[in-house]
Design a protein around this nucleic acid. Structure first.
Lengths: 197, 197
DNA sequence: ACTTATGTGGAGCGCTGATCCGGATAAGAC
DNA sequence: GTCTTATCCGGATCAGCGCTCCACATAAGT
């Protein structure tokens, strides 16, 4: 890659990062190009689709989340690991408003630039879930795809301005549905723990 | 209203109904106008915004849902009434792909044509919830807005092609989180009843 | 210094929702 | 039955979107 191209690419990524966090993933591609003092065609050549741009921008975040899942698998109890990781996933999506819709579309579109990252993420969650299920602390009638769907739904809730204030609380509600509390001594405490703050 | 205007209005509503169920609420306004053999301006004068069109089209459905809530309040047990009504709400949204997003935006936008309908719907749900809470069969740390958010999230799940197959199952998961099963003799059966079909 | 392969960005396409305004027409007066 | 007028219609137009093409600028290699 030519030096000026590399420079443009890096600059575009930096500008896109701030633009996306400010205006959500639906920000106009033209706006990103304008803010980078670059033609729209240049942006679209480096990143032919919105998904491609997001992939380049978020793949380190994806890696961190999957890595986190691996760490939790050894450092925490199955139940704590699962819930903590779910919370991290949902919290992460709040930084990029609207990314949830693209991810749910990407997970079964093998052509999407985000496809692989999403599948990997789902697999990481499935492992944490299976571990908790084996320990008897998570209900056994859900799988990794269900978990992915629940994360997506909670993330979507956080994206809706009118529902966002309830997102944290509803996370606890849904989490209580995933956990059985079977092998936990404080099962009841886990079912209705966190009072409305 | 002049006779030709009334005729156009009715015709547009009929055409919009089929167009919306076929292509979702994001269908281009121009397409609706084209299918009705009418200029775009005509459609937009009768229904200045997409919300206005939807309100005219769906307000009978909204009325039916709130009426249904009233009936269930006297005909069924608090628990059954709540779950049955929630299921009806979620099922109804599947007929109009994408309507959930507009509804969540409308519920706190007093300018939206859908605002009143959404608020009424939330109130109907809140009453069913309060009744179940009074009977001790629904968790007491959620309110009508939380319920609305959960319905919206489940409806959104059904709108996503990749997650839709799990929507019914996840409805049961979330429903189990809302219900405590306290006053029910088959509490355990309610917590993990429906095997994956 | 010259050539060439590569990168660039303005112009233009088809699409969207929205607005304007000249012409068509139904409703009401006579 | 005719005429007036208030109402309604819809083609033309605008700004915005993602996207593509291609004449031109320029960095890299000889």
């Amino acid at each position: 890659m030519r030096a000026d191209a590399r420079k443009n690419r890096d600059h575009l990524l930096a500008v896109a990062g701030t633009a996306l966090t400010e205006q959500g993933v639906d920000v106009a591609m033209r706006d990103i190009a304008r803010r980078a003092d670059v033609g729209l065609a240049t942006l679209l050549r480096h990143f032919p689709t919105r998904e491609a741009l997001l992939e380049a921008l978020l793949h380190t975040s994806f890696d961190e989340l999957t890595a986190k899942a691996g760490e939790l698998e050894t450092s925490s109890s199955p139940e704590e690991a699962l819930v903590s990781w779910l919370r991290d996933c949902v919290a992460w999506t709040t930084e990029y408003r609207g990314v949830t819709v693209l991810m749910t579309a990407a997970i079964e579109d093998t052509e999407s630039a985000l496809h692989t990252s999403c599948v990997t993420l789902r697999a990481a969650g499935a492992r944490l879930l299976a571990r908790a299920q084996a320990a008897g602390t998570a209900r056994t009638d859900i799988d990794g795809t269900d978990l992915f769907a629940l994360i997506a739904a909670l993330a979507w809730l956080g994206d809706q301005p009118s529902l966002a204030p309830r997102a944290d609380h509803l996370f606890d509600v849904v989490a209580s549905a995933i956990l059985t509390g079977a092998a936990s001594s404080d099962a009841e405490a886990e079912r209705r723990p966190r009072a409305r703050s």
